[in-house]
Design a protein around this nucleic acid. Structure first.
Length: 424
RNA sequence: GGAGAAAUGGCAGAGCGGUCGAAUGCGGCGGUCUUGAAAACCGUUGAGCUCGCGAGGGCUCCGGGGGUUCGAAUCCCUCUUUCUCCGCCA
């Protein structure tokens, strides 16, 4: 959610910048400013009336103290009219505020100045490509290999739940657990504090990170309790800092969390979502940082370099994309996507998305900090990234490391798996 | 799950329905004193919104939400959390 201050003060710049995201904001902004004007007017009127009422109440108090009961009773008459008016303005204010709140969330975050214009994923910029694409003698896609080696079972998952809920078995389960431990240990080494959050969140949390109200259909909803299954650990982790005022000494804030993630993915099933490419439940290790505004872009670079280091250690071919205005999410100001090359599918698979949200999330969250020697608080910046999402990494490892003898375990994972190869 | 008690500023802890945004102590910050520090003393010390060029003013916030009242930290309802006791349980 953009701040009203910014909308009012930098209207023209804002309209121009949002065109990068292919968003025509002018009409909406005019409407917001008009509503905000009304809001201020009603607020002021209500406050003034309230001040009058407060004065009268004090007067009555004093009269009672002086035992002037008659006069006190008379003075009470004066409040009747004022109270009525206050109620009127309260109603007006509530209406205008709820309308304002419902439309201000329609404005997307402003893209960073380096975000390229563009309509689709085709227009993203490849920032870097590295790692060798393996020259495979056999080239089976992972959905065949997992059956052959009996390490992941989709049919069983369908029996238990439904499509998109695979069952990981034996060495498949262990490989996945090895990856999780590897990712968590790596993050810990560079200063991330591990968190195990709830996997179910309430409405306030969903609103805080922007899943609600607009992306409601993406999450599984538990109607009886009005809770949501998390689509990513970003939701509980970032909400840890909802309504918090940080001190200078609290920075940097770096959290890492492993969690299962649940996504309904309604309507997004198609030809390229076979096997592990898209699931309703999957595992992910997520990194989150809360930063001071002046640092947030260097923090983003740091996070980008960290994610890259994981892919280098796993010896997977990867590329880094800077998302264009058309592909970047509603909430992000700048996003880097990481893709690994899945050698049998011969496709790039997105395995991480690292973003700076600037103060778009923190404005909703009311996450502020107090700069040293300043009285006023300011909104902090929030950033997050996958480090990494498991299924597509699994897919890429299974495909890229396949040999005649079996699926070779990447070197860095062997201490975690306790085996070097998955055989039939 | 049952019974009881509680929730107040960074922390501890007062607060008969009426000059209470809140005593007091600790902590923090500024100052006096000191070569420096400590001690002592004095002052200061929450947030949000808003009006004003500014000085300064107004409104709201005592776990969350609602209510009673001219007036609520204080009374009522409700939810949440914590503690004590009992029961149950991985």
């Amino acid at each position: 959610m953009l701040t009203l201050r910014l909308i009012r003060e930098e209207k023209d710049k804002l309209i121009k910048q949002l065109r990068i995201k292919n968003f025509e904001a002018e009409e909406l902004i005019e409407k917001i400013i008009k509503l905000d004007d009304k809001r201020r007017e009603f607020q002021l009127k209500k406050d003034n009336l309230q001040a009058q009422l407060n004065d009268i109440s004090k007067e009555i108090g004093i009269l009672y103290a002086q035992k002037k009961k008659e006069e006190a009773e008379q003075t009470k008459q004066k409040t009747i009219d004022i109270k009525e008016k206050i109620r009127e303005y309260e109603d007006l204010l509530n209406d205008v505020e709820s309308e304002l709140n419902s439309i201000i969330v329609l404005l997307p975050n402003i893209p960073h100045e380096s975000v390229p214009a563009g309509k689709t994923a085709e227009d993203n910029i490849i920032v870097k490509q590295a790692g060798d694409i393996p020259n495979l003698s056999i080239k089976k896609p992972h959905w065949d290999l997992i059956k052959e080696y009996d390490i992941i079972d989709f049919e069983l998952g369908t029996k238990i739940t439904g499509a998109g809920f695979p069952v990981y078995k034996s060495k498949g389960a262990k490989l996945q657990r090895a990856l999780i431990n590897f990712f968590l240990d790596q993050a810990e080494q560079v200063g991330y504090v591990e968190i195990q959050p709830p996997l179910i969140v309430n409405e306030d949390s969903g609103f805080g990170t922007g899943q609600l109200p607009d992306k409601e259909g993406q999450m599984y909803h538990i109607g009886l309790d009005n809770f949501y299954l998390i689509p990513t650990a970003e939701v509980p982790i970032t909400n840890l800092y909802r309504n918090v005022i940080l001190e200078e000494k609290d920075f940097p804030i770096k959290n890492v969390a492993y969690s299962a993630c649940f996504r309904r993915e309604a309507g997004s099933w198609g030809a390229h979502v076979r096997g592990l490419n898209r699931l309703h439940q999957f595992d992910k290790v997520e990194i989150v940082q809360i930063a001071k505004p002046e640092n947030s872009y260097s923090v983003l670079e740091e996070m980008k370099n960290y994610v890259e280091s994981l892919l280098i250690k796993l010896e997977l071919p990867y590329r880094i994309l800077k998302l264009c205005g058309g592909d970047i999410s509603f909430t992000a100001a700048l996003t880097y996507d990481f893709e690994v090359f899945s050698a049998a599918q011969e496709r790039w698979l997105e395995v991480s998305s690292v973003s700076n949200f600037e103060d778009f999330q923190t404005n909703r969250l009311k996450l502020r900090y107090r700069p040293e020697n300043e009285k006023k608080t300011r909104l902090a910046h929030s950033l997050n990234g996958s480090a990494l999402a498991l299924p597509r990494i699994m897919a890429a490892i299974i495909e890229n490391y396949q040999t005649e003898q079996g699926i070779v375990v990447p070197k860095v994972l062997r201490d975690f798996t306790g085996f070097d190869i998955i055989e039939k």
